[in-house]
Design a protein around this nucleic acid. Sequence first.
DNA 1: TCAAAAGTGTTTCATTTACACCCATGA
DNA 2: TCATGGGTGTAAATGAAACACTTTTGA
Lengths: 269, 269
Amino acid sequence: MRLVFVSQNGSSNEVEQDLEDILQRGGELYHPGFSIDCAIFGFHANQLKVLLLKVKNTGRWALPGGFMLKNEDVETAAARLLKARTGLEHVFLRQFYLFGDLARNDEAFNRQRLRKENIQASAEHWFLQRFLTLGYYALVDFAQAVPRPDYISEDCAWWDLHEVPALMLDHNRILDKALETLRLQLTYQPIGYNLLPEKFTMTELQCLYETILGRKLDRRNFLRRIQSYGILRRLDERRDGVAHKPPYLYRFDLPAYEQALRQGLNGAW
Amino acid sequence: MRLVFVSQNGSSNEVEQDLEDILQRGGELYHPGFSIDCAIFGFHANQLKVLLLKVKNTGRWALPGGFMLKNEDVETAAARLLKARTGLEHVFLRQFYLFGDLARNDEAFNRQRLRKENIQASAEHWFLQRFLTLGYYALVDFAQAVPRPDYISEDCAWWDLHEVPALMLDHNRILDKALETLRLQLTYQPIGYNLLPEKFTMTELQCLYETILGRKLDRRNFLRRIQSYGILRRLDERRDGVAHKPPYLYRFDLPAYEQALRQGLNGAW
DNA sequence: TCAAAAGTGTTTCATTTACACCCATGA
DNA sequence: TCATGGGTGTAAATGAAACACTTTTGA
């Protein structure tokens, strides 16, 4: 029951965690009253997915989240949590809202969780305090992500966005806001890199946009528009093994893509 | 040297604060390691202004800010701080970013501030801990706002955006990000209500847009575009006393304006 | 040979841009 | 009467939307 810092790949440190230990020592380790929750989006079988954890002793699913170490940047903490849950690094990860109303805390709920873990906790226990939570959303390559449950969860799985159940605490609201932000972002930022595999068809990209926007787009107009951004390169390769005319594969032109990320696409003013 | 809760207008409570008291008792009163900073924008003489405080014992100007009570919503805390600095309520006020890198803290700087106030503080003093700060921006009617210094400041004044000096800590960065957010927002939200007086000329509104965007717009095209939003009503009144053809006055059609705030204007997708 | 999705252009309509003259007022 | 900014419209260019037929493949 110790806190172990495990060095992985020789590249970055990950805090391997143990529930009882965390709950006992969290007060020393973490920035107080502050947590991070991540809406991690992936795309598979032409469906937008979100990674959820099944939290022990609650029967509820939740967004993966965690706490920030006292000497850790917020960004770094979010990246660490993302890596812990998916194994991925250097992906699109952005904060979108700080949830900070009093009503989001449910001390009774958390007290019950402690009880079920057989942990004694006074009223001043750090875990029972009020928490602000910072929402992050991440766009990751479904195929490369390896979901791993954490110390508070008994399961970790991708859920289709349309089938997400009632989540723990206010996590449905957090997820909704993440989606809303993503949708808004679509109007002034390119998207798709990190969500799609390296090579993909135009239809797959269109499908991604349609899923996020929640409506159908015209195929020819979509092609024209995307091409006008100048962030794609059509390869000579085609995807075959399909029972129809084989489509071209595309890849993102990374320098152009990153420039578009920085500069935005085409504001209304 | 007591903490006094002053009831104003019989409508809302304001925490009137005293520096020494705050520094002594902040640990009991406030959510730990968390602050709020506000970029309060106003518009006057066709210039975008921002409200700054001159912080005692530092010689620096800073964004008005403060702390959140333990049993207070984040939104409420921001509104309280805004009201304390400007006397205004029910204005546009929105969070835009949580600043949370380690580098933004400057313990030596804060320690010096305590020293100059002759306050004894151990290393664990709440004021010397690491703080996350949530940035809010507000759009207020310059004419109605009454700047009031707070307990940590010796002055409180509107600054022209182009003349803002080097601010305390990372406040320049916070202000820049507020402006960037405001600019982005302009592409999908109406703006001007709260920043302009009740009645205003089209040129004043255009000037506001130009100031925020940092570039000139065509007068006729601006008129057409703004009109197309359907959020303005032209009055029969004109502004007179000017040495040229007297311009019409406009006012916002509040229901339409608020609907546009909720629904957005015209997304690119 | 059939089903299924891919590739491809044009026309129409809407939006955006550029641009210039006369007007009403106070000084 | 002059200087100043206000009010107004049109033409051209650009961008968005609607729309259908032929092609290639695996089954």
